[in-house]
């Protein structure tokens, strides 16, 4: 690692002020992406700002038809929360699919979405549920938040404080794992909330998480795997590497979307 100085602010305001003064500084949440990246010297922030002492950044709360999860809430806490399991069971399940038990004790939802790894699970849930990302400055819709691989709409000195999830009527997530890394080779999240139907894909796109409007239109007529029968997406813009070609990933998007819709309506996988 390159040398850095370490800060532990007590409030979001102090953290934001440190960030404003030190443009190259990085926020440290769970650290399970940032620290490995720093070890490889792919990142060398001169300052690290640890968010773990700030009160009120972690926690889960349901209010009416909305579930709010604090940015520093660990994956394990989302996975095991009775509130999440009851309100959005697929979200609890998805959190339990990230990394391994020890990683889930440290990794946070805020860290995951701020990083926007193209293979991460949480961006698919956020885009697939149409969340609102709340920062110290404003509220950002998921559709505007994820702007490309490892990039987001966050401005300098902007800190995610929580994520607000509308509770869907039906939702499911299908993750097809890379057998070595266990990351999503392709993951498809589907949800239905009134007339709002969303299909979000992680792992496949070379520009990060994205929605599939053709699938969403087809599902608006009838929310059933049959509506997606024979449908696929173009291989253009899909990742292609030793783990799978662009065509393979494009094919998986269709397969997993049908399985996810089947799961969401409580039928066995198509």
């Amino acid at each position: 690692m390159y040398a850095f100085t370490f800060h532990r602010p007590q409030t979001v305001r102090q953290a934001a002020s440190l960030l404003a003064k030190n443009q190259e500084a990085k926020l440290l949440a769970g650290g399970h992406t940032l620290l490995p990246t720093m070890k490889l010297r792919l990142a060398g922030p001169p300052q690290l700002i640890d968010l773990s002492l700030i009160d009120g950044l972690a926690g889960i709360e349901q209010s009416g038809r909305s579930l709010t999860i604090g940015a520093m809430t660990r994956h394990n806490d989302v996975n095991t929360s009775p509130v999440v399991q009851q309100a959005i069971p697929v979200l609890a399940k998805l959190a339990g699919m990230i990394g391994d038990p020890a990683v889930r004790h440290m990794g946070t939802i805020g860290g995951s979405i701020a990083n926007n790894d193209p293979n991460a699970d949480y961006p698919a849930a956020c885009l697939g549920l149409g969340v609102t990302i709340v920062t110290n400055k404003r509220r950002i819709k998921a559709d505007e938040f994820f702007t490309g691989m490892f990039s987001t709409a966050l401005e300098p000195a902007e800190i995610i404080t929580k994520v607000s999830f509308p509770i869907p009527k039906k939702a499911a997530y299908q993750k097809f794992r890379n057998q070595a890394s266990r990351f999503a080779l392709v993951g498809v999240f589907v949800s239905k909330r009134g007339s709002d139907i969303r299909v979000a894909v992680t792992g496949a796109g070379s520009n990060g998480v994205f929605r599939v409007s053709s699938f969403e239109e087809a599902l608006k007529k009838r929310f059933s795997p049959k509506s997606l029968e024979g449908m696929t997406i173009p291989a253009d813009g899909m990742n292609s590497d030793i783990h799978g070609s662009a065509e393979y990933r494009a094919h998986l998007v269709g397969v997993l979307a049908r399985r996810a819709v089947a799961e969401a309506i409580g039928k066995s996988a198509a």
Partner: peptide, 11 residues
């Protein structure tokens, strides 16, 4: 349970 290779002492 935590992976001690991926946590800074100062945290």
């Amino acid at each position: 349970a935590t992976k001690s290779c991926t946590v800074l002492a100062l945290q």
